[in-house]
């Protein structure tokens, strides 16, 4: 089955860079990787957040809602990026789902 990885990045002026990559197989999300040059605390909580996103499996149309839901439910202080940056990167992926 066709497996592709799509990455998009966002940065607001003066902010840090967020890079989001989504693995997609046959129209299904097979994991989301959140990386970038931002800072986060507490350290363990951000690692839990990243692994929860990596384990996210859903339909492509649910991607934004599910990924943002995981981020909102974790009490991680992310320094340098905001939710809007993440939302925009996810929207870019949905609008231009080509690697």
């Amino acid at each position: 089955m066709n497996h592709k990885t799509i990455c998009k990045e966002k940065k607001h002026p003066g902010g840090k860079l967020v890079k989001i990559c989504v693995n997609i197989m046959g129209g299904e999300v097979q994991g989301v990787l959140l990386t970038g040059d931002f800072f986060a605390e507490p350290e363990n909580a951000v690692e839990d957040l990243i692994s929860s996103l990596l384990n996210l499996k859903c339909h492509l149309f649910e991607l934004k809602e599910k990924a943002l839901g995981i981020i909102r439910e974790r009490s991680v202080k992310i320094i340098g990026i905001n939710e809007e940056d993440i939302e925009k990167a996810l929207s870019d992926i949905l609008e231009n789902p080509d690697p």
Partner: peptide
């Protein structure tokens, strides 16, 4: 690289 970065990127 930073703690939260992927070497690939």
């Amino acid at each position: 690289i930073g703690r939260l970065q992927s070497p690939v990127l």
